[in-house]
Simulated scan of single mutants.
Amino acid sequence: MNITIIAGARPNFMKIAPIIDAIKKKKAENNNINYRLVHTGQHYDKKMSGDFFEQLGIPEPDANLEAGGGTQAEQTAAIMIGFEKDLMTNPADLVLVVGDVTSTMACAITAQKLHVKVAHVEAGIRSGDWTMPEEINRLVTDSITNYFFTTSATANESLRNSGITGDRIFFVGNTMIDTLLKNKSRFIRPAVWNEAKLTDHNYFVLTLHRPANVDQEQQLKLLMSEIIEHSKGLPIIFPVHPRTAKNLQGLGISAPNLYFVEPMSYLEFNYLVERAKLVVTDSGGITEETTVMGVPCVTLRDNTERPETITIGTNELIGTNPDAIKPAFEKLFSGNWKKGGIPPLWDGKAAERIVDSLLNISLQKN
């Protein structure tokens, strides 16, 4: 079985690393399984891309489509054109896509038009918010996927409700958690630890990048003002996404306890997250990591595609109204934050289940 694995953006790399490890392990046991890694180049900043290959032990990609930049449509087109040529030159039995970025959707479409079956890792996730590019990517990808690998019971239900039969749905767990658990002992203390004189559970980590939070000047200023005002002077470490950095220019936002830092590598960022008192974010993936590490998390969004981080984990969805920040912080400082638990199958073995399932699929076909 020849599998082409697609990676294009930061979250993808965390999800493919354990899958590649599991394939290598099965191949070493004389199973007929091979992979080819295609990096679409959707993210091309070194901190957002290169470090992941180095730190997570991912081999150099067999191809880099260098399709970064441009509008959503331009990027989608560039990825599809590049991947079509690559897949025609290097035929595969299956194309495996992960997550919900532009590369996921574009490569799934390309594969199906070339009559190559598609497997989607992290299938069935839904926010219900069609204003998010990721939601469109999820809907389109799952509408043309052959095999669905899911992270939660909610995702399974979503797929069944859309007419997907149970024999095509594989509840395997979360490969991003595979990567997290494997690398916890390797986390790296970042330079800001000493610069800001940080101590365990005595600082906040902040990430913002979604348009609803960072594209409107007044909204961004109000959010930052509320976070600073109600942090009780604890250090706020803010690794600034390139998109957010551009919008922050000229706003004059500063405070003695606010530290703007460059985007961090995976091992550095999670060192901070693991030891934080609170993580404030509008990211989906980070809420999964905080849930597994038992770190309180506030999500500045009106919806989430990862409800299990709220119903089971340590995450609270408070919306995008800056007025919601004060009561959330008061709840934290009063010691009343929920303990949380870990969702089923988030145990570090999701990639093994995926590869075992792929081998079974291959045997059934032969």
Rank of each mutant, 00 (worst) to 15 (best):
M1Q: 05
A7C: 13
P11F: 03
F13I: 04
F13W: 09
M14H: 09
M14Y: 10
I16K: 01
A17V: 04
I19M: 02
I19E: 02
I20N: 09
D21C: 04
K25I: 14
K27T: 12
A28K: 12
A28S: 15
N31T: 00
V38M: 04
H39G: 05
H39P: 03
T40L: 09
M48C: 03
M48E: 03
F52Q: 02
F53A: 00
E54K: 11
Q55M: 10
I58E: 03
I58S: 01
P61E: 02
D62W: 05
A63G: 04
N64C: 12
G70K: 10
T71F: 05
Q72A: 07
Q72T: 11
Q75C: 08
A77Y: 09
A77D: 13
I79M: 13
I79K: 11
I79N: 12
N90C: 00
L94R: 13
L94H: 09
V95R: 01
V95W: 00
V97R: 05
D100E: 15
V101K: 05
T102D: 08
C107Y: 14
I109R: 08
A111L: 12
Q112S: 06
L114D: 05
H115F: 12
K117T: 00
V121K: 06
R126I: 15
S127F: 10
M132V: 12
R138D: 03
T141C: 11
S143V: 05
I144E: 08
F149D: 01
T151F: 03
A153Q: 04
T154E: 13
N156K: 06
L159F: 15
S162T: 06
R168L: 09
I169N: 04
G173M: 13
T179Q: 14
L180Y: 14
K182Y: 06
N183A: 03
F187H: 09
A191M: 11
N194G: 14
E195F: 10
A196T: 04
A196D: 14
L198H: 07
L198S: 08
L198I: 01
F204P: 05
T207M: 08
L208F: 09
H209L: 04
P211W: 13
P211T: 15
A212T: 14
N213I: 08
N213E: 11
Q218F: 06
E226N: 08
E226M: 00
I227V: 12
S231C: 03
K232Y: 15
K232T: 12
L234K: 12
I236Q: 03
I237A: 10
F238T: 13
P239T: 02
R243Q: 07
R243L: 03
R243E: 08
A245M: 08
K246F: 12
Q249S: 13
G252D: 10
N257W: 03
M264F: 01
F269C: 01
V273E: 08
V273R: 05
L278A: 05
V280A: 12
D282E: 11
S283W: 02
G284M: 11
G285E: 14
T287S: 13
T287N: 09
G294H: 15
G294M: 14
C297E: 13
C297G: 01
T299F: 07
E305R: 09
E305S: 13
T311C: 04
I312D: 15
I312E: 11
I312K: 07
I318P: 09
G319L: 13
K331Y: 05
F333M: 01
N336M: 11
G340R: 04
I342S: 06
I342C: 07
P343W: 09
P343L: 00
P344A: 10
W346L: 00
D356C: 08
L359Y: 11
N360T: 14
